[in-house]
Amino acid sequence: MDIVNKGPLLVRRHGDHVAVVTLNRPEVHNAISAVMSEALERAVEDIEADSTIRVAVLSAAGGRSFCAGADLSEVAAGKGALIARPRTGFAGFVRAERTKPWIAAVDGAALGGGTEISLACDMIVAGDGARFGLPEVRRGIFAGAGGVIRLSRSVSRPIAMEMLTVGAPVTAARAAEICLINRVVPAGTALDEAIAMADQIADNAPIAVRESIRLLRLAADGDEPRLWEENACSRDVIVASEDAREGPRAFMEKRKPVWSGR
């Protein structure tokens, strides 16, 4: 696998067995566009197809934000459906089939879709200035790109309930305390730490790593197809509600939303 510059997505090889994938839209807090979703979907496929790559690291450019979620300008322009790929879901990543471990290297804010992309990875390394959160309920929507499904697999049920219903972000230190992430490191060093972890994994027997991951995912995610079906049902109910229109409108108008409960 060669170094590839795909505009909003950078892909490079580190050493013999590690791929580093970088979200590259720092000017908009690495918000996910339709083009980035397509590029990330393709990058996952390329990494899966390359037998020499054993581990992938997902990072983001700029240092201020890991990912702000979907690009709202594209959503407003009617391109929201293109940000969620038919087969692989939001960002071309959250439902992508992967047999190799992915480590998220998070510096800055990872809110909404940014947290969901992180949760779709197998491990998370965060700089001490990182923040994680699922604030969708504050906008009349929900964390439908895997946030609701995956959060309780990382943290306890009461903590997941609080994060999903209050919608407030947590610091990297708090995220480590509740077992949402693996490691906290000084700001600006998350990528280096994630690559070091990837190197350690890549030094191990690849078949043993692959099968360990397969069984671990099966144990944790065995009911995931059914959960995604229920996720779609919840999404349809929410999208059809008046509150789902009021939340984004209030956000754009910089006012407190007036919920109707309808």
Rank of each mutant, 00 (worst) to 15 (best):
V166I: 14
V75A: 01
L164V: 11
A105Q: 13
A175L: 11
E74N: 01
V170P: 10
A176Y: 14
F90M: 05
V137A: 04
V155E: 07
I149R: 13
A84R: 07
A143E: 04
M163Q: 06
I117R: 00
V106D: 04
A168T: 06
P101M: 12
R87H: 14
D122V: 13
S73N: 12
A76T: 05
A91W: 02
R139F: 09
I159T: 14
A76S: 12
A168Y: 04
I141N: 03
G92Y: 00
R131T: 15
I117Y: 00
A175W: 09
T165D: 03
R138F: 02
A168C: 04
A120V: 04
A110K: 03
A120S: 14
G146K: 03
P101Y: 13
G129H: 14
E177K: 15
A96W: 05
C121T: 15
A96F: 06
T115R: 02
V106K: 09
D107T: 07
V155S: 11
I159C: 06
G108S: 06
G140S: 03
G144L: 01
A109T: 06
T115P: 00
T99N: 14
A109E: 07
R85S: 03
I141Y: 01
A84W: 00
V166A: 11
R150W: 10
L134F: 04
K100L: 07
E116D: 02
M161Y: 11
E162Q: 12
R85D: 01
P101W: 12
A81V: 07
A105C: 09
V166L: 10
I159E: 12
F132C: 12
E177C: 10
R98F: 04
R95I: 13
S156H: 11
R139L: 10
V148A: 08
A77V: 05
M161A: 11
R153N: 15
R157K: 12
M163H: 06
D122K: 15
L119A: 07
L164Q: 03
E136K: 00
A172K: 07
P135Y: 08
T165N: 11
I141F: 01
I83W: 00
S118K: 01
G108C: 10
A143F: 03
G129P: 11
I149Q: 10
V148H: 05
D128L: 13
T99E: 14
P158W: 13
R139V: 02
L111Y: 05
C121W: 09
V166H: 06
F93D: 02
G129E: 13
F93Q: 02
R95Q: 15
G127C: 11
P101A: 14
G108K: 03
P101C: 11
L164W: 05
M163C: 04
T99A: 13
G80S: 01
G140M: 03
S73F: 07
A168L: 08
S154A: 15
A176W: 15
D122S: 13
A81W: 05
I141D: 01
A160G: 13
G129A: 12
G113W: 02
R139W: 02
I103W: 10
R85K: 08
V155K: 08
G89Q: 06
S154Q: 15
G140P: 03
T115C: 06
S73K: 09
D122C: 14
A81T: 09
A84F: 00
A143C: 05
